[in-house]
Design a protein around this nucleic acid. Sequence first.
DNA 1: CTTGTTATTGCAATTACTTGCAATAAGGAT
DNA 2: ATCCTTATTGCAAGTAATTGCAATAACAAG
Lengths: 138, 138
Amino acid sequence: MSCTDHLTEALRIRGYRMTSQRLVILQVLHDAAGHLSPLEVRDRAAASLPGLTEPTIYRTLEFLTKHGLALAAHVGSGKLVYEIARHHHHHVICRACGREVEIDHAVLKTLYAEIETFTGFHLNTSHLTFFGLCPDCV
Amino acid sequence: MSCTDHLTEALRIRGYRMTSQRLVILQVLHDAAGHLSPLEVRDRAAASLPGLTEPTIYRTLEFLTKHGLALAAHVGSGKLVYEIARHHHHHVICRACGREVEIDHAVLKTLYAEIETFTGFHLNTSHLTFFGLCPDCV
DNA sequence: CTTGTTATTGCAATTACTTGCAATAAGGAT
DNA sequence: ATCCTTATTGCAAGTAATTGCAATAACAAG
């Protein structure tokens, strides 16, 4: 059973459908080195599926994020970028040079526990971005 | 010396100017209970300053945020909302009912120190949003 | 394989946000 | 008080993101 079949099955069980659009977008995210903006996804996906439209790009990225197949991150000024969902992590970004470092979620475990105790909320882990200056830019 | 004069002075020292547009937008943020989207700011500011345009709203909010007079937060799906800058805090938001709780930054001090040690970055504190389910929605 | 149901897409129109540039006005200097 | 410099705004046009709805196509069932 291929990777694609697994994904298809996972969606179907929940009452959703696998489509060529979703597959292409997943493939684009999978092949990407880091984050992609929705329009970057559109441009890269256009090669495999020329008819793909913008509303579908946005809706699909939101769909994939909602169902745990993609991660959305707030990088810089208010726009969302996406990446394929792998291990759970966060980002530290340098405001000066844009350099990015990943922080494993394990580092935030304690904090999450504290916040849960303090607020009574049950946190479902977000994808956080911390900003600062990297060693080279200080 | 009024509060307004202080703000004016603070900007002037850095080579910027106080304008009626900036004052009105600051006033709107100050009077607001919580977060406001750029368009909510526009609507509320329109009463005091009818000529105010959208580009100015967006540019001013960005300007105020950059200079520490306003805070931008990512609430929900990728759109920025703003609030007047007061004490340094973060938010926990319930995905189900939208309820918000503030977390003082003091709670994150340890984590920030850990991340700084781990990455070598010097973090300038961001305005973070954690998502989860509140006690009523679990 | 064919059919039926309905999740998903594309289209068209709308709203949200951004950008370049000329006109305006804040605030320092005379 | 008037002038000068230039930060800031408004305008107009452009790009990005969203929405409603009819057409399409997954996929379950016969």
